[in-house]
Design a protein around this nucleic acid. Structure first.
Lengths: 206, 206
DNA sequence: TAGATTGTTAATCGATTAACAATC
DNA sequence: TAGATTGTTAATCGATTAACAATC
């Protein structure tokens, strides 16, 4: 399944389709046209049809799309039929917040938190144990990790990234305000909170 | 200062320029060409010059850019010469994490947290008091709020958004997994964590 | 002055929108 | 069948890259 040809613009719209269709299922809506979906989601009907047709034919002329089928198709395109194993580096407020967020319902399962603070090590957060970061490599040699979540202070973020990459993490979800350097086969998704705030500041003045 | 003509693509690169130039100042680098900056930041030299020239002429032919001057110019373009007043709605782990993040160094000052949990109300988090969300309107009638940060559960996010908008918040930094409906003069910046995770999932399978 | 590098215009590339034939 | 709406091609729009004259 090589999907390298799909543009990031399309990929980043997939979660919004997923969310919107989930809402429609909850509301009992069974069928939807690209025009109706357009009004709810804010993308043009044309773009919606183009987006879907990157992955196959999910609709029916004269009818539209079956909401459940489309939702299920998009879940599979995103890869939500699989479970992903996460570890969180840094058991501060942010690390704890992420464990409590409820991602496991979507198949993102946090297996462990890591910290270097002896007061935190051994603590259980939402059913997940805080382990000593000294045993990170030992842990990772025994447990596969799909996504390593970095919530450490910025000054140690790169060295933690190096360690999880060497130990086999396939991707990094980075919350530290730094652009990590990683091998090209490792995927990095950044949440640059400071950048978001600066964007807001700019827009407030324009 | 109407900057409505600048594309969002450019605006969202500004914080990265800011961060990169801050790093260069820390390293004692005094001057930089668009070509050198390109190698560090990963944007093309051509794009860098195009981006800057949206706002004015900051370089010198044959020389390049003075790092301190450029950094200071970009700070002003973003609007970092001002202080922004924030309130955080929801004093859970995420709300606390945001208060502790250190945004105040950049001029983003959290004045209060709000929650409806009586166990949390009155608590002081990193010097910021947790107030009863029942007094939100009273508080906002006395204190201007530039950015209302929503870290509440998704089911109350829209109603909290409505309340802060009516009380005069100019913008919302939203962490709840919902697309808020607000008047068009209110700016919303979303941090859709679930969307980020789904993007990672997609990329892990492609 | 000669070399270097910007500011800016022109060319290219990619993404979005419009249009419509296919077909349910 | 007639109406509706997709899938898909063509047109447009906008963003990025290339090129180069201006100039420090």
């Amino acid at each position: 399944m090589n999907k390298g040809s799909i543009s990031m613009a399309v990929i980043r719209r997939l979660p919004k389709y997923h969310r919107c269709l989930s809402d429609m299922i909850d509301k009992g809506i069974e069928r939807i046209s690209s025009k109706e979906l357009s009004e709810t989601i804010g993308f043009s009907a044309s773009q919606i049809r183009q987006d879907f047709n990157n992955f196959g034919k999910f609709g029916q002329q004269g009818y539209g799309y079956n909401v459940e089928d489309l939702h299920s198709a998009i879940s599979n395109i995103i890869g939500l039929q699989h479970t992903y194993r996460l570890i969180v580096l840094g058991a501060g407020n942010l690390g704890e917040a992420l464990v409590n967020f409820g991602f496991e319902k979507l198949g993102f399962q946090v297996d462990a938190l890591f910290d270097n603070n002896t007061e935190k090590i051994g603590k259980i957060v939402h059913g997940v144990e805080v382990l000593d970061v000294n045993i990170l490599e030992t842990y990772m040699s025994k447990h596969p990790v799909d996504i390593a979540v970095i919530t450490t202070p910025v000054k140690v973020a790169q060295q933690i990234a190096d360690r999880v990459v060497i130990s086999g993490a396939r991707s990094i979800w980075n919350f530290a305000p730094v652009d990590l350097v990683v091998p090209e086969d490792v995927i990095v998704e950044n949440v640059h909170l400071v950048d978001n705030l600066m964007t807001l500041a700019y827009l407030l003045n324009s």
